[in-house]
Amino acid sequence: MDRIPILDIQNLSVSFSQYVDMFRKNDLQVIKDLNLKLFEGEVVAVVGASGSGKSLLAHAILGILPYNASFSGRMSYCGEPLTQMRIEQLRGKEIVLVPQSVSYLDPLMKVGFQIRKSVNDKRSKEKMLQTLNRYGLGEEVEKLYPFELSGGMARRVLISTAVMDSPRLVIADEPTPGIHIDAAKQVLGHFRKIADDGAAVLIITHDLELAIEAADRVVVFYAGMTLEEAQASDFSDESKLSHPYTRALWRAMPQNGFRAIESIKEADL
């Protein structure tokens, strides 16, 4: 494979230091040795249970980990090392985040302003209106405050914030929480379109079914470790899946028998 991946993550580990008591610190590793490659035009889903440190993956890439977190490993963007300095130049322009919920929007600022990052020139306004239009939002949405948005509108507004500049890498953190399956498919369709326009899209989700539906490749993540990386099509056949956790997840899906996941033993991991 000669293509240079847009994002290449090698052996990424993220850990938190916590105070056990007054003097002793404890390092809590939340992501262990993660490897991930994303190519242009590709949608990759990272699937993991809640609390498995998925969001931290997004934060690590964007360089916005909290002060008590540290990471090791190598990340490169389009073949160049992605250092803190580099990400500070790129984020918001070439690398964008689509956050989880409307609480990531300033509650006291009109949505229009936030979509165009408080820039007020004519070009940004036009681009914003185009974007709103593209996601089926009316012009009046510009004048609303975040608390006035419905769940579905909020979702589309959050995606709109990402496509104002032409991003090369879109990281969507849990883009389909608690919305109706059809609405979720529609949202994922938007990401597919962004990828088709030439970006790489990383979707972080807990929903395996949607991940298989929307992504080209699926990475299954459990307790901080990558358990399985497979083509989405491999999920149509249990025998193509290698890890017992993934197979258990697969069997738990309604169309595959709907069997509850038995507790997995540490030894399996």
Partner: peptide
Amino acid sequence: EYVLFAVARGEKRWEIFRHHGLRNILL
């Protein structure tokens, strides 16, 4: 979270203060 998102969108300290900080502590 909205300031975290602003940082993720490349807003600098002064911009964050002007756009979000002042607005939200004024009340």
